[in-house]
Design a protein around this nucleic acid. Structure first.
Lengths: 253, 253
DNA sequence: TAGTGGTCTAGACCACTCT
DNA sequence: GAGTGGTCTAGACCACTAG
C-alpha cells in the first residue's frame, strides 16, 4: 500500500524519447550537425531500433530532423517561409512568379480535378508541370490543369517539344480576365513522380495546395501544388518573412 | 539470360499494398464501412502486421481511413472543407465566428510566440483557449496569446473563473483597430493536450495555422490553431464549399 | 566496401472499447 | 472477457551513398 502510485499514465517510450531528443536538439546541437546513427542511438537509449525510429519519424515530420538513406540524420534548419497567397491575385506564369516551367502534356485530368473544371470525364486538358525552388532546394512541384476551352487559340496547335507549348498555354491564359481564385490546403503523401522531383521518398508527407482560377464565370484552370511538408511553412497574407522557430538554436560553425 | 528482367525497381510491399487498398476503397467500399481487422488483413495479403500497418498509416494520413483503438478501422468520409481565411479580416471572437471559448489563463508564451509578440521572455500574457466544431466533430483547438498591452483596461482584473475573463479579453481586443493579419500553415504533431481535445492520439499529424494580428503598429495578438490533418481541408478565399475528393464514392446505407 | 537509413518479419504484450 | 488497434522487441536483409 505504501508504493508510490505514479505511472498511472505510462507514456509510450517513443513519445518520451521524442521529448528527450527535442530538448537535446534545442540545447546541445547545431543546425546541420550529424546525429549518431540509429543503431547507436537505440542502444544508448536502451530501446529497439524500431522504437527509436518512431521518435525520429515524428521529429522529421515536425521539421526538426532530416534523414537521408546512405548518409545519416542531421539537424534540420528552421522551415523556410514560402509565400503562397499574396493579396494580389494573379494568373500563374506572370512575370516574376516563383515557378519554373519544366514541361507539359495533354491528358485526362484525375476525377477530382475534372469535377472542379466541370469537364467531361474523358476530356483531355493541357497539363503544365512547374517546379519551385527556394534557397537552391526544390520545395514544390505543381501540375496546372487548363482545359482547351480556356485557351481557344491553341486548339489546333501541334506539340512543339513541351516547354515551348507550356509557355504558349500560359501566355494565352493570361489574356483572360481573372475574376477570382480559391485555395485549399491539405495533407497528402508524395506520389512517386513528385517525390523524385522533391528529392524525397515516395509517401513522404506533403502539403497539397489546390488553387482554382475563375474567369468568364467558369473555372478556367486548376493548380495542384505539392510542397515538402518537412521543410516548408506556407505563408499567406501581407508579410511572411519573419522567422518562426521552436527554441534556442545556433548555426553550425 | 532469358529471364524477364522486370523488377529492377522492386516497389516496397507497403507501397504496393497501399495502392491495392486505395483501389479497393474506391471501388468496393462505402463510407463508414468497417474493414477487417489488421491481423486478418495482414494474413490475407501475406505480410507481417507491421507492414500492413505501414500502408494503413499512410491511408489514414491521406484521410481515406479512420482507425480507433478498441473499435476498428473504417472508411473515412471525404475531408470537410474548413474555412480559415475569408477575405474579410477580423478579430477573433467577433459574433458568428466558428470558435467557442473554452477557457483562459495567464502564462508565459512559448519562445516562438514571444518572439512574434516582441515581448520579453518572462512576460506573461493572456491565453484564451478555444475550440472549433464542425458537423459535431471537434476539428481544431486554438491558443490565443494576447499581451496585457493589447487590453490595457484589464490589467488589474481578478481571474473570474476562466471563460468569463476570456470573453472580457476578447471584447477589449475588439476595441482596437485591426490593421492587418498574417497567416502561416505548417505540418505538426499534436501535443498531448490538443490530441485529447481533438479526440486523437498524441503525435497524430495536425495542420498548424499561426495567425498574427496587427494593431497600433504592433503584433496585438497571436493565434496558434491546430487542425486535425486527417479530416480537414483548409480553405482560403471566396468559396470553399465545393467537394473535392479522390474517386468513386458512395454513402453507407 | 563499409556504413547509413529503409523495409520486413514473427512474435509479444498493453490500452482501450464494446457487450 | 473478447476483440480491436497501439507499442515494442530482436533480429534480418535491402538500397543507397561515399570513401
Amino acid at each position: 500500500m505504501g508504493t508510490t502510485q505514479l505511472e498511472t499514465v505510462p507514456e509510450p517510450k517513443y513519445w518520451h524519447l521524442k521529448t528527450v531528443l527535442t530538448e537535446a536538439l534545442d540545447s546541445e546541437f547545431t543546425v546541420g550537425e550529424i546525429l549518431p546513427n540509429e543503431r547507436d542511438l537505440a542502444a544508448r537509449f536502451g530501446v529497439a531500433r524500431a522504437t527509436l525510429r518512431q521518435a525520429l519519424e515524428q521529429l522529421e515530420l515536425e521539421g526538426r530532423l532530416q534523414r537521408r538513406r546512405g548518409v545519416g540524420t542531421t539537424v534540420a534548419p528552421p522551415r523556410v517561409g514560402v509565400a503562397v497567397g499574396s493579396d494580389d491575385q494573379d494568373w500563374p506564369g506572370v512575370l516574376g512568379d516563383a515557378w519554373q516551367t519544366v514541361g507539359s502534356e495533354s491528358d485526362v485530368p484525375p476525377p477530382a480535378v475534372a469535377r472542379m473544371l466541370e469537364s467531361g470525364t474523358d476530356e483531355t486538358v493541357h497539363i503544365v508541370r512547374r517546379s519551385r525552388v527556394s534557397n537552391g532546394q526544390p520545395v514544390a512541384a505543381e501540375l496546372l490543369y487548363i482545359p482547351g476551352a480556356s485557351v481557344p487559340d491553341l486548339s489546333g496547335i501541334e506539340n512543339p517539344s513541351g516547354t515551348a507549348r507550356a509557355r504558349g498555354v500560359l501566355r494565352e491564359l493570361q489574356r483572360l480576365g481573372l475574376e477570382g481564385q480559391d485555395r485549399a490546403v491539405e495533407l497528402g503523401s508524395a506520389r512517386a513522380a513528385d517525390a523524385k522531383e522533391l528529392d524525397r521518398l515516395p509517401g513522404s508527407p506533403v502539403l497539397v495546395v489546390t488553387t482554382r482560377f475563375f474567369a468568364g464565370g467558369r473555372t478556367a484552370a486548376v493548380s495542384v501544388a505539392t510542397y515538402r511538408a518537412d521543410t516548408c511553412r506556407l505563408t499567406f497574407g501581407d508579410s511572411g518573412g519573419v522567422e518562426i522557430h521552436h527554441g534556442p538554436e545556433r548555426r553550425a560553425s
